Simulated scan of single mutants.
Amino acid sequence: MNILTPIFSVVKKELKIMLRYPSWFISLIVWPIIFPFGYIFTAKALSGTEASSLVQFQSIAGTTDYVTYMLIGATIWMWNNMMLWVFGSSLRMEQMRGTLESNWLCPVPKISILFGYSITQFLMSIVYVSVSVLEFKIFYNFKFVGSPLLALLIMLVSVPSVYGLGFIFASLVLWVKEANSMVFLVRGIISIFCGITYPLAVLPNWMKNISKFIPMTHSVNALRAVISSGATIDDISKELNFLIISGIILMFLGIMAFFYTQRKAKNIGSLGHY
């Protein structure tokens, strides 16, 4: 059977569920407004009435526009958060619904199920980012200095590493039967080590060294350089190269993790265990 058939069957099924229960779109509208607000409000309070600390912020961040700086980091964080909750726990949700075993009996490559979820999540990400940019412009005076096409390229190059991590996460969740604590752990690491709301320069050296190996760090840095400072593709070539290489590695590890989990579940008969 053509592998594209089960992939798009999963996409069609997920889109039908979304349209049948459209309340999820409310959170898609609300979260881009309320999530960055706490960070921005705190930054305004800490900067003082004369905003004298902006000089120091500019010296380490390269810009005085801390609002846009934080909005970019918040968007990447929310994208990863959506990926972990929705895509990362997709197989576990099928298991809880009681449909995973019947899907597993279909004569199709089992990894096509995950690919279908990844495409659905990618479409949701496009909607989320589009809504976020629009609302940022309306509510936070979001300033886009650089090339939108280059920013789009950065997002596309970031996709393999993000969804490679999602493949690994989905496989582990299916194995350990629990998603919440793993989501909190991974997104906490991203928040601290990737400089979502602050420059990495303020971190201790050992934390900065760890952050260099996290793809989201390079996504955030490249987007900030392009959007806030108008950087060119040559200026962010190192970040792009890292994202391409890490994307290939993480996608490979994600696929291997899925095949291992599939074989493990078959051997011990745990696929239908709650």
Rank of each mutant, 00 (worst) to 15 (best):
G88H: 08
Y260R: 07
V157R: 03
S27Y: 11
G188N: 10
N2W: 09
P36C: 06
V157K: 04
M96N: 13
G62M: 02
I126V: 13
F142E: 00
Q95I: 01
V86T: 13
G166C: 07
F259M: 09
R97H: 14
V157P: 02
V162W: 04
G116S: 04
L153H: 05
A257V: 00
Y140S: 05
Q121S: 15
L223N: 05
L172D: 04
T261L: 01
T99Q: 14
A43Q: 09
L271M: 13
M216D: 14
Y128T: 01
G254I: 04
L100C: 11
M70R: 05
A231P: 06
S130K: 00
W77H: 15
K12Q: 11
T261K: 02
L134H: 01
S23T: 12
A151R: 01
T63C: 07
L15T: 11
Q262C: 08
F252T: 15
L105R: 05
K266P: 04
L19K: 15
G146D: 05
G98Q: 09
S219R: 10
I26R: 02
L149H: 03
V127A: 15
M124D: 07
S237N: 07
M256L: 13
S237Y: 08
E101H: 12
Q56K: 14
I210W: 07
F184R: 13
L15D: 02
N2V: 07
K177I: 03
N221E: 15
N2M: 13
T232V: 09
V183R: 11
P148H: 02
G164V: 08
T232M: 10
A231S: 14
G73M: 06
G230M: 09
A45S: 11
A170T: 06
P199C: 06
K266Q: 12
S52H: 12
S181H: 12
L100K: 09
S23V: 12
L271K: 04
P215N: 08
L19M: 14
N209W: 09
G188D: 07
K137G: 13
L28T: 08
I76H: 01
S211P: 04
K264D: 04
L174A: 10
F252E: 08
S9H: 05
F258N: 03
L165G: 05
G48E: 06
S211T: 06
L156M: 11
L91H: 07
I17E: 11
W77P: 01
F169D: 06
L153N: 03
F242H: 09
V127E: 11
F139V: 00
L223W: 05
I3Q: 15
D65N: 14
G38F: 13
L28F: 11
T99N: 15
S181K: 11
W31G: 03
I138N: 00
I196N: 04
C106V: 10
S59H: 10
A51F: 13
F8C: 07
L250C: 08
S89N: 10
S147P: 06
